[in-house]
Computed example of a mutant assay.
Amino acid sequence: MHQNNVPLVSVVMPVYNGERYLTEAIESILTQQYSNFELLILDNGSTDSTPDLLARFARVDSRIRLLHEPKPFGYGGEVASNVAARQAKGAFIAKLDADDVAMPDRLIKQVNYLISNPDVFLVGSQLILIDETGQVTGKRDYPVTHEEIYSQFYLKFPIANPAVMFRNILKEDMYQIKFPHFNDYYSLFRLIHTGYRMHNLPEALTAYRIHTTNTVFTNLRAKWSSNVMIKQAFVREFGYSAPWIHRLKIAAITQVINLFPERMLLKIMNKARQLINA
């Protein structure tokens, strides 16, 4: 599918030392059913073979645009995503991390949804969970409707940031950098609170890879502290009223995190979140 009358999609992919999974991530975009896209890959100071891999891909597919920043920005790729998105030419911007995999129909389904729903700013999806070898280990479910998404924002991040597509209409950066971690969580709430409608498709359109070097799963106690600070900002800055049961669940998770040693937290946290659906 490559026609002049279909909108261009800019796929933004920040990468830092991503040689292990980068090929699979890139190929999952190049083989999309929807072909009218540009793939903006920002190499943020990689010191492994990432630059060579990117150069080889760019030589054989003109839809790839390579960007380079010599010093890592940090912040989980959010600053790098902002920098890349400023160069986007598409009507829509899609996110994909360099260790994840897009399903072949991801772009076409999200484009069709945004075209059919002009009042919606951002569309996400459910997630398939995969391990280091690409084997499916589970699924992560997200609320579908705008109202459900808003109501669950205090309890959890109800949008899978690596699976979003949104309209290229913002006059400022998508991700506002205010906290040590999870500025995507804060930024999307800020947008939805100010009237930007959001929706999650019921299908799992992205495979999210869980592995030992995934930044989400390191330094967990400090990251949970950022998570709680962001939730408090929802209340303080925006007057968000969280259901008491959601506040109780977050307090319970916080107690668990403060009780156990850091090395045990990942397994315990995942189990606790499953049990209380947070």
Rank of each mutant, 00 (worst) to 15 (best):
G18C: 06
I210L: 09
A91E: 14
S10R: 00
L66A: 09
H2S: 14
Q3W: 13
K249D: 07
H68T: 13
A222I: 03
I159V: 15
H211E: 14
R263F: 15
P162W: 14
I108N: 05
K171L: 11
P104C: 02
S225Q: 15
A25L: 07
M198P: 02
R59T: 04
N17Q: 12
A58W: 02
R59G: 01
F92S: 11
V12C: 06
I41K: 00
S35V: 09
V15S: 12
H146N: 15
L259I: 08
K171C: 05
A98C: 14
K171W: 05
E147M: 03
G76W: 07
H211F: 12
R59A: 04
N227S: 13
F73H: 07
R106N: 07
V235Y: 14
D119Q: 09
V11K: 13
L275G: 05
H146T: 04
E69Q: 07
E148Q: 13
M229W: 00
Q110A: 09
D131T: 08
V11M: 10
I93E: 12
S81M: 13
Q32E: 07
D61R: 08
R167Y: 11
L30G: 01
E237N: 12
P72V: 14
L40E: 09
T215K: 05
N161Y: 01
Q135F: 02
G138P: 01
I108E: 15
P180Y: 05
L96V: 15
G138K: 01
D105R: 09
H2V: 04
G138I: 06
R56W: 04
M229I: 03
E69A: 06
P14A: 03
K156C: 08
H211C: 06
D184H: 04
R56P: 00
V256W: 11
S35L: 14
Y185K: 06
A55R: 08
T137E: 06
Y21K: 00
Q33Y: 09
A207D: 02
V228A: 06
K171Y: 09
R247Y: 02
L122Y: 05
A242F: 00
D100A: 04
P118C: 11
V123H: 09
R209Q: 10
V6I: 15
L66D: 10
D97A: 03
R20F: 01
S81Q: 09
A222W: 11
G18V: 02
I177M: 06
A55I: 07
D97R: 02
R209T: 00
H68R: 08
P158C: 10
Y75A: 05
G134A: 06
P51R: 00
A278V: 15
K156S: 14
T145E: 06
A160V: 08
S225R: 11
